[in-house]
Write a protein that binds this DNA or RNA. Structure first.
Lengths: 254, 254
DNA sequence: TCCCTATAATATGTCGGAGTAAATAGAGAT
DNA sequence: ATCTCTATTTACTCCGACATATTATAGGGA
């Protein structure tokens, strides 16, 4: 639908193949190039230290202007993926320089086959942060927070996790907990990870049936937070995340 | 020194005031603009939803080309600070869209008076992550990791934390622990936070003397990790981070 | 052998114009 | 009076050529 309208509106564009093919509806041209290069780098097609083809050569190859290419490189540079210096060209930086927690970088990492080890790393980080967040939420939540969680829970019950609406409610639930911590850094971090991780679970769970009814576990978390039971909330959340880790891990390795 | 050489090499540049004034040695022009706008946004000079002055107007105002301005905007967009659409102009996004964990954004946040609440948020996050990291390190470290930690400790003992070399050794110590977790996501996260937080502590501690000898606490962490005592490592690290939090908090509020 | 200078390759900065998309105002219909 | 549709305006988007700055590399000099 959306793509068609974009194509209809601009069939007379005389840009190169890439511009015609990759430019989505709202997407800018340099965004498309950044996406292409970003996914290529994240998927390991370039080894760290590899130098991308030069500005002029690359731009000609893709039939886009140098401006578009340069703006794309600025984006990649801002995310720590590459570094470009005169004469030396634009080189891919070593992995530890990448902003792996950048939402866009995470998204790029998860297009195609995501690196198994990296997914495990993210789950591990989530398993560290979310229980602690639940603990803080239990100490700091107010009535409004509890209402958001409760609403999300009822929504989850109505639509199951098999539907998109149900998964959205699940995200809402976690988001409400994070908001209740009153910690923006925590909120941003888990939002980034959560988006990427949920995306994969959704993707992977197409094959196998949903493991088991997750509602009771969520309710346990909610009850502890509502009661102000910090330790209980942390423990309940730990159980919840461990379960998700377990499921995803087993569906990934085999 | 470096600045002088840069000035010497290019006194004939006929760019505008801004280009002459703000361009540092290695810094690119668009980088300088991004820095200027980034710090302005992070310091709250623009309310979310505010629209920056238009491309043409701004470029003329600073006497830089539109291209430079555009590349700077790409950087800010990549970090989630702004969003620009035709006709609407370039608007500052709401705070929760910002990539607060991006190293550069963090650096921008800490130029000038950093937001007290935000610093507390970061310390809280650190207090969550680092003990967990110590736990993992105790389980997974190898001989090489232990050697790195030990070397860093001896360096810390020789130069105290009052010297830059000593602080570098401190960073090395924590970095070695993070490496030992074998978790890249964790490593990147704490590297970002650590750089920003250490910077402030260094800044703030100019006034008051170093609180107390931190070496024994570090040794306790090391011993637990070396012994493979996961719980002990987590607990020792928790004590260490709490101490830092306490010191910084007290030096901030009063 | 080492250092230093010259060169060439490559990225960076600049400019102005043409194209495109969206917010807004105004005309027409209900 | 309100709503819908169209036209205009405004700002971003893209382009390509030109000029400049930087630095890796090679070659000459001490």
């Amino acid at each position: 639908m959306e793509k068609q309208s974009a194509l209809e509106s601009g069939p007379d564009i005389e840009n190169g193949q890439f511009a015609r093919a990759a430019r989505g509806p709202g997407r800018r041209l340099h965004g498309a190039i950044a996406h292409k290069l970003g996914t290529a780098i994240l998927s390991g097609q370039y080894a760290p230290g590899d130098t991308l083809s030069g500005e002029v050569a690359f731009a000609e190859e893709l039939e886009v202007s140098r401006s578009a290419y340069r703006e794309a490189i600025q984006v990649l540079t801002a995310k720590g993926l590459v570094e470009s210096r005169p004469k030396a060209g634009t080189r891919v930086l070593p992995r530890h320089r990448w902003n792996l927690l950048d939402p866009e970088v995470l998204a790029w990492a998860f297009t195609g086959e995501p690196d198994t080890q990296f997914v495990r790393d993210l789950f591990e980080l989530r398993a560290i942060v979310e229980p602690a967040a639940a603990r803080l939420a239990a100490e700091r939540r107010d009535k409004n927070d509890l209402k958001r969680m409760k609403d999300a829970l009822t929504a989850m019950r109505r639509h199951t996790l098999a539907t998109e609406a149900g998964r959205a409610a699940d995200r809402d639930f976690h988001s409400a907990i994070l908001s209740a911590t009153r910690n923006d850094a925590l909120l941003v971090l888990t939002a980034s990870i959560g988006a990427a991780v949920n995306w994969t679970t959704q993707y992977k769970q197409r094959a196998r049936a949903l493991p088991r009814n997750p509602i009771p576990d969520h309710v346990r978390v909610f009850d502890a937070i509502a009661a102000g039971d910090a330790a209980g909330a942390a423990e309940a959340m730990r159980a919840l995340v461990d379960l998700a880790l377990e499921d995803t891990a087993s569906s990934m390795t085999r």
